[in-house]
Design a protein around this nucleic acid. Structure first.
Lengths: 225, 225
DNA sequence: CCTTACTTTTGAACACGTTCGAAAGAGAGG
DNA sequence: CCTCTCTTTCGAACGTGTTCAAAAGTAAGG
């Protein structure tokens, strides 16, 4: 990342004012319908000022995403503390995730759009998002630890990342889910989490050895350059 | 879709000239680097003419996608005819898919970008792409039929769509895979196909009943509004 | 205070996807 | 041939994301 802009108190204030105004406009009129000129004038600055603090229009959404994610830590911790049941823990994390973005659900489409391009700095798989990614993965590691789930030794190192991938998929589904209250996503989470945990539990059984070995091969195939 | 443009022979020729020129430019300089003015002037027409035939820049890519897909039918048929082994059949279809887009791999990023937005007409899940989607799904149905795989009755109606989804995932991975020759994707296909088929074979076993029931619940949860 | 170096802000300018009203072309009917 | 209608082509104009050189503000050192 380049030198952080907005070191002085006043600059920090401006930075925040731009983001807050932008989010309000995005929420009220939609992301595509809001122009950067709108964003700037809402914050009472010139167009260029917005670009002094944010690299792009999507970067505003990313700033929101990062901020939300930081604030979610508490909710994640609570979800994990509330039960030893791995299903409940994961469910808690995902619900917290959804809750934090609820008001701006469609906003995330803009992030996804940019993120699809692996060369885009906003890609969820790229180096620039490594910090949030690792942070989220770490939460899943904590959710597994001390839960009622016994993970086979060979699967253990992959599981947190797998859960993260699973949660990204759910978020994607949630974003494009236009059913009222995102009912379909709720059902998908319920049923798929059920299946996933069952698979994990069963994977320790001796009969499942060959199947598990194959699954591990997939994971290993993906990670090596 | 709106009234098809380019009914006269000359118009059809212009339409083709624009697409061919665009693809050449995209391949040589990249999608983002090519402007619509470039595309038009390469075809020897005014800027507006390109928009008379194609709704957007991405629509050019979609036209390429549709054309490629039509041409791939033969390769798909050959892949299915070559063996009864379901693994080989699926592998054949996917390889054909990759082959047809090989020259324009990074181009598909543009389609994905647009497709991420479910309201975009180019979304792979939207109504406007239903025809290709159904066509592709039908190929998977044919691949299953007469293969060495016995599919449980309850899973059967979902399997072609599932395979289509699986193949979309692979295509996505392939697009963003920058390893030389897309080696990682090759390995992913090998290993994941292995796992998938093993899962399908095993799913008929009586012991697997509960697991299969859960998987079915996931599928049903997703399809209902 | 004045100078100097640095941060922040400005707003005009640029690039490019897209639109649109008008012109040109191409038959069909008389 | 002329006229009328429909298709095709044109290119200027528009909107918007983004850039950039210059101006304004700020703080520290003398």
């Amino acid at each position: 990342m380049t030198t952080e802009r907005g070191q002085t108190a006043k600059a920090e204030e401006t930075r925040g004012r731009i983001l807050d105004g932008a989010l309000r406009l995005f929420r009220e009129h939609g992301f595509a319908e809001t122009t950067m000129r709108d964003v700037a004038s809402e914050a009472g600055v010139a167009t260029g000022a917005a670009y002094y603090y944010y690299r792009s229009k999507e970067d505003l959404v990313m700033a929101f995403y990062l901020r939300s994610d930081k604030e979610a830590g508490e909710a994640f911790a609570k979800a994990i503390a509330s039960s030893k049941d791995i299903k409940k823990r994961i469910r808690g994390i995902i619900d917290a995730k959804f809750a934090q973005f609820a008001e701006h659900r469609s906003l995330l489409t803009a992030l996804l759009k940019a993120g699809v391009d692996p060369r885009d700095p906003l890609s969820p798989f790229g180096p620039e998002t490594k910090e949030v990614r690792d942070d989220n993965i770490a939460w899943y590691a904590r959710a597994i630890e001390g839960s009622d789930l016994t993970v086979p030794k060979d699967v253990a190192p992959y599981l947190p990342r797998m859960l993260w991938l699973y949660h990204m998929g759910l978020i994607y589904f949630w974003i494009i889910d236009e059913s009222p209250g995102q009912r379909r996503t709720q059902r998908l989470v319920d049923t798929s989490l059920d299946l996933l945990v069952q698979l994990l539990r069963v994977s320790s059984l001796p009969l499942m050895g060959p199947l598990r070995k194959r699954a591990l091969k997939v994971l290993r195939a993906v990670e090596e350059e």
